[in-house]
Each structure stands twice: as structure tokens, then as C-alpha cells.
Amino acid sequence: MHIAGRFHCVYTTNRCLCTPNVLYNRIALFRADHGLSRRDLAEAVGVNPQTIGYLERGDYKPSLDLALRIAERFAVPVELIFSLTPSHRWPTPCVAKEPAHDEIRDPGRGRV
């Protein structure tokens, strides 16, 4: 077993299995957009709040099950949260937000 560039490689009898060392994520961005604390998200997906912190910092890679539960909580495809490429290349998430009460207008009277 050794590290080859950005990949962690394990050699078996006739092949090399390589996996990326870095898994980028946008958990903190989605949490902020949805107004969730780490504790709120942790409770929603069934893990310890520290796990969410480890994931956000890149100290821990989620299992497939956990990645899917996180994506399901935000109602987006898992690829919008996790990627093998840095986040600056990803599209910005579209999170529909309800207007604040003072932004709601009655067409004939102005603000409600």
C-alpha cells in the first residue's frame, strides 16, 4: 500500500485499486442555506454532531449510506454535495427560500 499523488493505492495479486485521497463537500454551504446547525443535521441523518464537523473539514469520508442520507435531507443529488473536484468548479446550489413577510406585496396596495 502506498500513496501515488492524490490517490491511495492498494496492490493485490494482479491489480492496483486506487481511490482518491480527497473528497470535497459542500455540507457547510447547504447547512447555512437551510439554516441548520451541525446538531440539527446530525439528528436528521442519525449521526453524532462531531461527525458532521469531521465531514465538513475533510477529516472523514462518509459511507455511501451517510452521503445519501445527507443528500436526501437537502433534497438534492449526492453529486451536488460531494465531489472529487474542488467546489469552486461546481454550480451554485439553488435553494428556494420563502420571502420575508415584509417582502410580500399585494399587487394593488404595495406591501402587506
Rank of each mutant, 00 (worst) to 15 (best):
V10K: 01
G46H: 03
G35H: 13
E43T: 06
T51C: 07
Y54V: 02
P49F: 00
L41A: 10
L41S: 10
T19K: 06
N25Q: 06
A42K: 00
I52N: 04
V10Q: 05
N48H: 08
F30W: 14
Q50S: 13
D65I: 06
I52W: 01
Y11I: 07
H8W: 03
G35C: 14
L64W: 09
F7I: 00
H8T: 06
A42T: 02
R57N: 13
A44K: 13
R38V: 03
R31Y: 08
Y54R: 13
D40R: 08
P49Q: 04
A44N: 11
F30N: 04
V22W: 08
H8Q: 12
P20L: 11
G58P: 11
K61E: 10
R26Q: 13
G53P: 00
L55V: 10
C9W: 00
R39N: 14
P20Q: 01
V45C: 05
Q50P: 00
E56R: 05
D65N: 12
L55S: 08
H8E: 14
C18V: 01
D33S: 15
L29F: 10
L23K: 08
G46D: 12
R6I: 08
F7G: 01
F30R: 05
Y11K: 11
L17S: 14
D33A: 15
D40Y: 04
V10C: 02
V47R: 00
K61P: 05
T13P: 03
L17V: 11
K61Y: 07
I27F: 02
Y24V: 07
A28F: 01
N48L: 07
L29I: 14
R57P: 03
K61M: 12
N48W: 02
V22G: 02
N25R: 04
L29D: 15
L41I: 09
T51R: 07
T12V: 09
T51A: 10
E56H: 03
F30V: 11
K61L: 09
T12K: 07
S37Q: 08
R31H: 12
R39H: 12
G53R: 06
V47N: 00
A44R: 08
F7E: 11
K61G: 10
G58S: 02
V22L: 15
R15M: 12
C16I: 12
G58F: 02
F7Q: 04
R26A: 13
T19D: 09
T12D: 14
K61F: 08
L29C: 10
V22F: 12
Q50M: 10
T13E: 15
N14F: 05
Q50N: 11
